[in-house]
Amino acid sequence: MKTKKQLGLTTRLSWTGFLFTLPFVIGFVLFFLRPLWQSLTFVFSKVDITLDGYITTFNGLQNINYIFREDATYTTNLIESLTNLIWQVPLIVVFALFFAIIMNQKFRGRVFARAVFFLPVIIASGIILNIIQSDAAASSMLSGEVVSGGTSSQSDALKDLLANSGMDSKVISAITMITDNLFDLTWKTGIQMILFLGGLQGISPSLYEAAEVEGATGWESFWKITLPMLMPITSLNVVYTIIDSFTDANNKVMLQVMNNAQLVRYGWSSAMSWCYFLLIAVVLSLVFIVFAKIQRSGDRIKY
């Protein structure tokens, strides 16, 4: 005696699937969509805190006007953090790939080397990096020797050397910018290196064996096998490096956003972070387009 019509198996399964994702759906509405919508309204309004809540009054584009026209540092910070992103992300990803390839080889002391190379994952925090870096720099100034990468005396010497060899000043400043930040960049490769390592171990050894039989050198099989096989992880790593820079303690735009929020200037703070986010969204979509193109051209070669 059936009182209720039994639901079909697929319908039941699809409901179960939805129930599993329900925590996220609720959380998305409560802790993401609602604050996101609110902060969007904050961009166009004046926010006043009262005893038991807050009042927003619409004031048009005043906040946007303020951050770009009157705030002394926002525009420069925005440009700086974007340029940093553009030249640092490729370098970090290339470094990570390089480290991963080395860590993937078999050699004595590999366990120890791995333990050391993953240290940055644990201490990947901008504040701590700043402190230990300035620490080492201060001591090198005291004892008159260069302790770790990125101290001024070292890059001055490099500048002189390059200038004497007749290089263009723009090229020189680009090179010294990279050497000055070498320390920071290597410290930011932790997670990306782990991801690449995972990817490298996923490549079937038979591919390399086949290439060797056909007479390919190690160099050739790197460009023809390793790199194409790692493309999906490379795109993942590029995206991860970009989103990781949001929470970097040296990201000046984000520090400014936080400071303004702590000073209860919610309108300005929201306007600043939304403009930053829109620019990042443009960068991310460019990344997606580029990697989709690479993937497609790779597929064409295969077939």
Partner: peptide, 28 residues
């Protein structure tokens, strides 16, 4: 599981990853 809106939910997950947390911090 396969269900309607599954792709949409995954897109929303990706959205929470790529929006800088600071954007929603003041209102949070």
């Amino acid at each position: 599981y396969k269900f309607k809106g599954q792709n949409l939910i995954f897109m929303l997950v990706v959205l929470t990853i790529i929006v800088p947390p600071q954007t929603i911090l003041p209102s949070k």
